[in-house]
Design a protein around this nucleic acid. Structure first.
Lengths: 344, 344
DNA sequence: CTGAAAGCGCTAACAT
DNA sequence: ATGTTAGCGCTTTCAG
């Protein structure tokens, strides 16, 4: 390994000078600087980041802790953080938490030990108290995709309630009257909020949900939940899914049952992952700007991790989902009731 | 920040003793160890990884460089590396190369400076010479998803030729005679190899491809390429796509043109990403064991990065894709020709 | 403008 | 079994 000493020796200067051309960039003679730069290049010298971090106390590492990197949503989240990391010349460290509080904490500890003063955390299961404690210890911690009131100014999150309301209102506008929801079996956090949003939007029109089914938040879960809805004979022309994966499952189940999407039932998703464009019909869904949010969160984390960072305790960072119209929603079909009325 | 000195002071021992209980775990008295551990816990002491890495020269960092983390394939790749990183108590550093040779190199340099002696690289555009040079400098570098003969023992790759042949033979077995291919416009690396595999399998039966269209390797590209095939009037009952994304696009385009999948044309993909299960019909495809391969590559990189690592220059690391039968392939429909023959 | 020297937090001989 | 000490590679005063 070629060190600063080697460069200094070859260039015939002291290590301090080398260090100066590496950093300061002023207070070094031109001739000297040129020579040093040349040697650096010749030797292929790379400053040792550990040594730098050790002494200069201002390490430029940013960490991400997400449940599972192989899921598109989290990969995209990581990509967003990576974007600002690259722009700011930060190094990106990663760890999966595997959906467990314990490994989540372990991952955070590990990243902290590695000088990640800035850290983006996607936590689903740690309780608010733990999070708050963590945040107190670590000014550069920001929580993404979750709102924790006690540390509101360090939360970058999405207005799920609003998103669900928008989706529901859109369906309402298209003439739908009979709604069903398939949601995550894990009813805390956004599944709950989204469900509430749908109910609220329905209530505005004096309507109620015809049925709700819970299952795992993936394609299989979407299939199961939809089959359950059908088996129970719940009448619905509009189906709101907790996320795109479940929506895709719903479409599969619906077609399997001889129902057409969107002619017989309209389906709407949430997230706008690639699967939304893969299924047929392509899914109308609420776009979740994850990558953008993650990039923003990284920015915030970096700022907050600076020793002189300002505290804006009185504000939070809320993003809005947006409807993406594709092909899984149509106007409500004439309902059974309407048919009867017509016949009369 | 609480350092080893603080712990030593509070525990009333020397820093060496603290260091010992942290590492060795032998040659420390029980009472003493217990006390130190207690203090460590009380103070919430975390060893500074930079200082450790600086002195002990055996840093446990592993890096990943991929083009774009937000794509499922790369996210899954990263997840595989993360898995062995976690098992081996390595830290995972990441960088996107954004499909550019320059930023790819920059990313690698950055990770190296950060003590990543083990490094997994997914490189599509860097030439073999560059890669070889890099590999020479860095024993812990392993290339994934690409075969570079000069550094064969550091390549973890997939038998794309075989995969394409298997897919083609499967279609042949199902009675198909007229084949078309949609592939990536970027014809080097696996697209080329897969195309060659298909041609080879066809040649075994004295058959030839009816047509090939190139486009971008995503859903839109799949649509475009398929439309082009249709527009040119290429006759085919079996369509092989470079990857799942293109296959999904093909399915969309086919249905849009009034053709049914798999009744009128069978479609087969490659990769087995989540989109394969999202589309309707679900895609029959060649499973690419990325996560497994990435975990293996990480293992290999760690081994090779050890100073005393054995060199197995005479061997490489080849994985096999496997056919996953779902619903996008059916037996060949009676061909026009057969119809005529029947009529005669 | 440049060099000497003091650490950053930790590990690993070398002492005791 | 435990303490002392010399660095790891680098940045940063402090002198000159």
């Amino acid at each position: 390994m070629v060190t600063i000493k080697d460069v200094a020796r070859v260039a015939g200067v002291s290590i301090a000078t080398v260090s100066r051309v590496l950093n300061d960039n002023h207070k070094v003679g031109d001739a000297c600087r040129a020579r040093v730069k040349k040697v650096i290049k010749e030797l292929g010298y790379q400053p040792n980041a550990n040594a730098q971090a050790l002494v200069s106390k201002t390490p430029s590492n940013i960490g991400v802790v997400t449940p599972k990197l192989s899921m598109t949503f989290f990969g995209t989240l990581a990509a967003g953080v990576e974007k600002t990391a690259r722009e700011q010349h930060y190094k990106l460290l990663m760890a999966n938490s595997l959906y467990e509080t314990e490994s989540e904490l372990a991952a955070i500890a590990s990243l902290r030990a590695n000088n990640c003063h800035a850290l983006i955390l996607h936590s689903e299961y740690s309780d608010e108290k733990t999070l708050q404690k963590l945040a107190d210890e670590m000014p550069g911690l920001v929580v993404i995709n979750r709102y924790v009131p006690a540390i509101a100014h360090r939360c970058v999150w999405l207005d799920n309630q609003r998103g669900a309301m928008d989706a529901t209102r859109y369906l309402l506008q298209r003439g739908h009257q009979k709604f069903a929801v398939i949601t995550s079996i894990y009813q805390n956090g956004d599944p709950q909020v989204r469900l509430a949003g749908t109910k609220a939007a329905l209530a505005e029109q004096g309507l109620q949900l015809q049925g709700v089914e819970e299952s795992t938040a993936n394609i299989e879960g979407g299939i199961q939940a939809t089959e359950a809805l059908l088996a129970r004979g719940v009448p619905f022309s509009a189906l709101l899914a907790y996320n795109d994966l479940m929506a895709v499952g719903a479409i599969h189940a619906l077609f399997a049952a001889g129902l057409r999407v969107p002619e017989d039932v309209s389906v709407i998703g949430f997230d706008d992952l690639i699967v939304a464009r893969a299924c047929r019909p392509q899914l109308t869904t609420m776009h979740y700007p994850v990558e953008e949010m993650a990039a923003y969160a990284a920015q915030l984390a970096i700022e907050q991790s600076q020793p002189n960072a300002e505290m804006h305790a009185h504000r939070t960072h809320l993003f809005l989902p947006q409807l993406v119209e594709r092909d899984s929603v149509a106007d409500a079909p004439a309902t059974t009731q309407t048919d009867k009325e017509k016949r009369q």
